[in-house]
Each structure stands twice: as C-alpha cells, then as structure tokens.
Simulated assay, not measured.
Amino acid sequence: MYFDSAATSFPKPKEVKKAISNFFEQELGSFQRTDTENSDFIYETRRKLSDFFNVESPSSIVFTSNSTESLNIIIQGFLKNGDHVITTATEHNSVIRPLVKVKHEKNIQITWVKCDKYGFVNPDDIISSIKDNTKLVIMNHGSNVTGQVQDVEQVGQRLQKYDGKIKFLVDISQTAGHIKIDNSKIQADFLAFTGHKALLGVPGIGGFYINPKVDLPPFKVGGTGVLSELLEQPKAVPLKYESGTLNSLGVLSLYHSLDYLNSLTTDKIASDLKKKTCYFLDRLSKMENLEIYSLENPLGIISFNIRGIVPSRISHFLSKDLDLQCRTGLLCAPFIHEFIHNNPFGCVRLSMSYETTWEEINVVCEYLKNINEQAESIQNIKFPEIYEMPSIKNMEEYV
C-alpha cells in the first residue's frame, strides 16, 4: 500500500505512462536544438500551467528541475544586502536553507512567524511583521507535515497596499494539483511548483511563475539552443532562466497529467481527500494513545504519533506487516515540530491520493488500532539520545 503521496505521487495516470513510453520510441533530438523535433508540447505545457494557475502569460512559466531549484533561483536572485524577508515556521528546508545561506552572504534580516499546533499561520502576524526594508514575504501554501492550507489569498491581497514594494513568493509544492490555484486572487509575484507530487508528473521537473514586472538575474547561463550569436544570456523570459537541455520528458509528463487533472477537476480531488482525512481522523481520535497533528484537509495528509513509540518504529511495523510505504521524522521541515509539539523525533505521516481506496484506509486504521491497544507493551524501549534540535525561537527575529 502506498501512503507517501505527499513525497511523490503514485500511481501516475495511464496517459502519462503511455506518453513516456512513446517518447522513447518516437522522439528525436532535444528541445530547441534540432530542426527535426516537434517542440510544440513545451509551449503548450506552459500554456496549460498558466491556465491552471490563472496567470496571464505562458512565457512567465519557467521550467526547472523541481521546487528546490525554483526557490533557490528566486530567493538568491531577488534578495539584496540589508533586505528584510518575512517567512514562517511551516517552511520546508528548500526555503529555510537558501534563506540562511543568503543571510550569511548578504546580511539580510529574516523574521520567522510562528504557527499554531496544527501548522496554521495567522495572516495578521505576517502583516504586522512588515518593516520599512521588507522586500519579500515567503509562505508555504500547504504544510507537508500537517496538511494545513494557509490563507495566502488574504496575505497577497493585504500586501497590495504596499504598491509592489513587497514581493510575495508562495511555495505551492504540496497544493498544486490538490486544490485550485488562482493567482488572480493570491496575487503572488512568484509561484514555485514541483511536478512529481500532486501534479502527477515524473520526478525531475518543476518550475516557477514570475511576475513579468519582476527582474531576477539568471541562476546559471549557457546554451539555450537559440540566439547563439549572443555572448550574454538572452534577456527574455523564460530563456533567461532555462540554460541547458530541458527535461523534455518531464515537461511531456506534465502536458498529459494536466489534461487528466483538468478532466477530474481539483474541486473533486479536494472534496475526496477532505472526506478521506475526516474519516481517518475520526477513527484515529478514538485511540487513546494517539497524538494527532492534522485537521481535515484537501492534501490527504494525516500526521500522528503513538505515545512512547518512536515514529520510525511505527513505520517499520507498517512496512513489515502491511507492506505499506509512508514517511516519518521531521519531513524536511524542522521548525514546525516545536509548535505541533512532537520534537525531537517528528511524526508518522500517512499521505493519500485520489487513488487511495477506502478499503486501504480501513486496513490501516484497524492495524493502528491494534498497535494502540498493545502500546503499553511496545513502549518498553529506551528513547535514544539525539543532537539538539534547531529552534525557530533561537533565530534573531521571531514573532
């Protein structure tokens, strides 16, 4: 059984699998680098993504290898010496580590905003943290730990009164494909996405939307396949940020997965996952030894611990007895755990998809019920000593 969709979605739509197979059998050449290759699907995928996120121009969609690369391009390219950035306790290391790197290199100021015990960030705390030198606000749209979805629309709309002086970066890695992303309401200047999660593409493809009015230096320069007479990187987006051979196979997977998602609709996916998480949580709430960190959510994420049992041990039981794949630990988001109160070992995360069956959910619930009933005998282990956990409260600016 597969309960790790928040890491990488599985299974992929049959349309995606068929297209990938045909690609290896029929496609020749490399995008923009031969006269024999039909490259229309690259532009068409940009167009489909621009429609999917409701942004105006397909050329504002830049392809990268994943969200991590996208976030690095934006964070390291946009922030300058003395800038102030506001971000949250829910962020993934793909935001935290670039920010810490830029802080060392450019002496930026960072305000880290707390969340509640389910990972919700109050928009008032974001807005009240704004200073005269605030240049960027970064928010994780959906927590990969708890499944909590943030009110990015309210934040984006409230930032408009600053007349474009404060840019807004939203990490939609967990939400894109699960819920509707309407940037006409969010009004983000940057949207960072990955293809291998709920967008149902293959690993190694991602990208970002960039507001056409915003200019970033390219993260890397080199071959673009066109305008070879220029000795400097082309200025036009997306070429400016797409040096080297594109992952055409990855783009093709999104070309087809977006058709599948549009036929299914994100409303239907979100409704299905809300029902599944609601049912799952109701079953788990009846187990006295469980600590639950998730609320009903459209991302299909259920995070919990069984008191006295290290999370990795629970995943070992699930793998051995049910052949179930899930994820445990800090989940690449170290700060949120001190607010949901499960340090130092993190939690067990079960993450579902539209393809997860009710039978599978019931099997897992029954199994966890049995572990819960045996918890007292399983708890007789010594918790290992570990290194000191990083704390957001030790960062320079914390609200």
Rank of each mutant, 00 (worst) to 15 (best):
residue 227 L to Q: 14
residue 181 I to A: 10
residue 140 N to L: 11
residue 201 G to M: 05
residue 223 G to L: 04
residue 158 R to N: 11
residue 147 G to W: 12
residue 204 G to Q: 09
residue 210 I to H: 06
residue 219 F to T: 00
residue 134 T to D: 09
residue 167 K to D: 08
residue 88 T to N: 07
residue 217 P to E: 07
residue 116 D to H: 07
residue 100 V to I: 15
residue 149 V to W: 08
residue 118 Y to K: 09
residue 106 K to N: 10
residue 135 K to D: 09
residue 138 I to N: 05
residue 215 D to Q: 07
residue 106 K to W: 11
residue 164 G to K: 03
residue 151 D to S: 10
residue 156 G to A: 02
residue 206 G to A: 04
residue 124 D to N: 15
residue 146 T to L: 08
residue 190 F to K: 05
residue 104 H to Y: 12
residue 205 I to F: 09
residue 190 F to Q: 05
residue 185 K to E: 14
residue 205 I to Q: 04
residue 161 K to V: 15
residue 214 V to T: 14
residue 177 G to Y: 09
residue 208 F to S: 04
residue 216 L to H: 06
residue 150 Q to A: 00
residue 151 D to W: 06
residue 165 K to P: 07
residue 216 L to Y: 10
residue 102 V to E: 05
residue 191 L to D: 01
residue 161 K to T: 15
residue 128 S to P: 13
residue 198 A to S: 15
residue 193 F to G: 11
residue 141 H to Y: 15
residue 191 L to H: 04
residue 191 L to N: 01
residue 205 I to T: 02
residue 130 I to S: 10
residue 179 I to R: 07
residue 124 D to W: 00
residue 168 F to P: 07
residue 175 T to A: 13
residue 108 I to C: 03
residue 90 T to E: 03
residue 232 E to T: 13
residue 218 P to D: 06
residue 120 F to P: 00
residue 118 Y to H: 12
residue 159 L to E: 09
residue 165 K to W: 03
residue 160 Q to H: 02
residue 88 T to W: 07
residue 130 I to V: 12
residue 146 T to N: 04
residue 131 K to P: 15
residue 218 P to S: 08
residue 224 T to E: 10
residue 125 D to P: 01
residue 183 N to K: 06
residue 108 I to M: 09
residue 144 N to C: 10
residue 194 T to M: 07
residue 147 G to F: 07
residue 133 N to I: 00
residue 125 D to I: 00
residue 93 N to K: 11
residue 113 V to S: 01
residue 110 I to K: 02
residue 171 D to P: 04
residue 112 W to M: 02
residue 231 L to H: 14
residue 180 K to I: 14
residue 162 Y to A: 06
residue 177 G to Q: 08
residue 225 G to S: 10
residue 131 K to N: 14
residue 194 T to L: 07
